[in-house]
Computed example of a mutant assay.
Amino acid sequence: MTERTETMYDVVIVGGGAAGLSAAQMLGRTRRSVAVVDSGEPRNAPAEEVHGFLSRDGISPAELLAVGRAEAERYGAAIVPGEVVAAAGDVHRGFEVTLDGGAVLRGRRLLITTGLTDELPDIPGLRERWGKDVLHCPFCHGWEVRDQVIGVLGTGPWSVHQSLLFRQWSNNITLFLNNTVTPGDGDLEQMAARGIKVVEGAVETLRVEGGFLRGVVLAGGPEVAVDAVVAGSRVHARLGAFTGLGLRATPHPMGIGDYLETDAEGATAVPGVWAAGNVTDLRAQVLASAASAAWTAVVINNHLMAEELERDLLAYRTSAALTGA
């Protein structure tokens, strides 16, 4: 049964991560009515800690979101559990989002902060350790594996760059080509200069023992002991619910996945719909996602203000014409 709310929020935000909550806080401070739909599935949930977030370094993802929800609610935002399965409407009539439980929320504007999903290589043991000792970002997790034995799983052209980058954190780096990466002569020279080992052959599995990653097992070959593995994922914007609005993901020029295109202020191709955070910026870390969403919230507020000003001017001029004022 569909439960359609009579409330028309100023803004409905789909996505309750750092970006969505940051926007909700900012919009709440501008005295806007806001609903945040939170599916409860943040991308960084497997990670133990958030890093590179000034004043919150080392906080767990769950605690960061709990703090963010409390701050957004303090300014009047409604946090609505659920997953959006469909969206419809336009900037003139307003937008409606339908939740998996059948509820329908309405908003004058729509902000998409649904983030990304990671498509991981199909290697046993890898997903089990994802966000723990299987990593992808040196700036997020490099410090935690400093001076350890690090293997870089070949997944594409960027794997060579990853091995060179992680060399800043450890002098014991091995690039597993995994029958996927073919370094050029220049790549091989650079890695040799930095003391990076290169291992040929396909990776069959990661050996996990006692709750820790122990080694990389090659197909038909030996096991190489490692403390951590770097694995680049392909990332995909979470946009399935918004196809009814005409929104589609765009392949990223770096060849690492897809994203939702916006202008510099977060506006999508659909008037009245904005996006912020990882769904539109694949490289943004948690702090950058929150910051971009805060600015997009300012832009949305200003668009609403302009609409209200136009409405009130029309009413004022009509009244003045009737009274002769």
Rank of each mutant, 00 (worst) to 15 (best):
A19Q: 00
R234A: 14
R146I: 13
R234V: 11
S233E: 06
I300D: 01
T7E: 15
T250Y: 07
H136S: 14
S159F: 08
V149W: 00
Q168F: 09
E265I: 06
L105W: 01
S163K: 00
K197P: 06
L245Q: 13
A284D: 09
P81E: 06
Y259I: 08
A231K: 07
R43Q: 08
I13K: 05
G244I: 11
R283G: 13
L64C: 02
V217R: 06
T155W: 03
D281M: 08
G28I: 05
G221K: 09
L314H: 10
I300C: 00
G215A: 15
D133A: 14
L218W: 01
R106A: 14
A45T: 10
A315I: 09
L287W: 05
M26Y: 10
R317M: 11
G102M: 12
D10V: 12
R207Y: 00
N278Q: 14
F53E: 04
P251C: 08
L126A: 02
D227Q: 10
V226K: 05
P124R: 04
E144T: 14
P42E: 05
G246H: 07
S233N: 06
V226S: 08
G58T: 04
L164I: 05
G210S: 09
G201D: 07
V145M: 12
A306M: 12
R43V: 06
L99R: 07
A293C: 01
W130S: 14
G266W: 01
V152Q: 02
L21M: 11
S163R: 03
R32G: 01
M254H: 06
V12G: 12
A231V: 09
N178I: 03
D258W: 01
H51N: 11
G15H: 04
D263C: 03
F53S: 04
L99T: 10
